[in-house]
Amino acid sequence: MAGELDVGYVAQLARMHLTADETELFQKQLGDVLHYAEKLNEVNVEGVEPAAHGLPIFNVFREDKAKDWFTPAQALSNAPRQANNLFIVTKVVE
């Protein structure tokens, strides 16, 4: 399984450019990590429920009531680009 990792392809899925050097290095390093993780195949997990948390966590509900939160100015205070109370982004639709 560890041999099936294609770092270049996964980097595309993760929307992250890597240099050729990084791709080669991560291929080796993450191959080692995945090889180490193959030890999990030794464990008999038949009938075991997967745990998403260490402790039992239940859905939490609250009243559907509006609360004060950021003003537009606060929400935009770290925007790389903004205008007219909006985030300006790279063109999405041609």
Binding site: L40, V43, V45, E49, P50, G54
Partner: peptide
């Protein structure tokens, strides 16, 4: 990977 790891997490718990 992910699902199996969650099951082993349960065993560790």
């Amino acid at each position: 990977y992910y699902l199996r790891a969650q099951k082993v997490r349960e065993l560790i718990r």
